[in-house]
Amino acid sequence: MVMKRIIPCLDIRNGRVVKGVQFLNLKDSGDPVELATRYDAEGADELVFLDITAGTENRDTAVRMVERVAKAIFIPFTVGGGIRKAEDADAMLLAGCDKVGINSAAVRRPELITDMANRFGSQCVVLAVDVRRKANGYRVVVDAGRTETEWAMEDWLLEAQRRGAGEVLLTSMDQDGSNAGYDLEALRSASNQLRIPLIASGGFGEARHALEAFRAGADAALVASALHTCGLTVKRLKEQLSKEGIEVRPC
């Protein structure tokens, strides 16, 4: 059996972690390497670095960060944010990350998924999909939720899977930042559509939410702000999930 994964997400700005992570005894809470090491030691199964400043001018900073992280942790990690073409992904993969997340650029130019899958293999293509609930179902949105697209969630997921995406990171923009739980209906629907693994994102606040997401069909849960601000640790989260009968990697 493949175990359910807990994936902390770190927001990066100019090579530094933002949204102040409240760890004790951390010399520099903005240092991605120190934080990554800490999460690794706590039992995180994977990490996601989301570069919110990503753009060509910051590419070198991001690459240097990836190089340092890759020397410090020995679990898989994904880098996302501002990846527009296969060359951008190449630079990140060469620097040592395992997977690259793409989002808006893939919606604008779906061939990006195919390009990356052909060049680097599907295993390193994480398609991030942001959705919003509408009267007639879930709609794909881009540009951090500002722009609505023509894609219904289910259609886009199938298209992405067909083009070679290796994994889907599904974020509910309605739930994101709420700490009120993932959008379970969206997860159920996505999980029914997909054969590739599904990562739940947006809304995590407590252990129960991850449990619900896994029961709704998610293979992994992205946890962000609650770990940073609510004092919950990966270790404690996994202990609680384990008690509920969810198979997780022991810390």
């Binding site: 059996m1 493949v2 175990m3 994964r5 199964d45 679990i75 898989p76 599907s122 295993q123 290796g166 994994e167 997909l194 054969r195 590739i196 693994p197 293979d219 992994a220 990697r249 022991p250």
Partner: peptide
Amino acid sequence: KVPHMGWSTVEFQDTEGPAY
């Protein structure tokens, strides 16, 4: 789910552990 992606237990005769 395919690919088989994530952590699974590997069992050897005398030991076992989680692998990616």
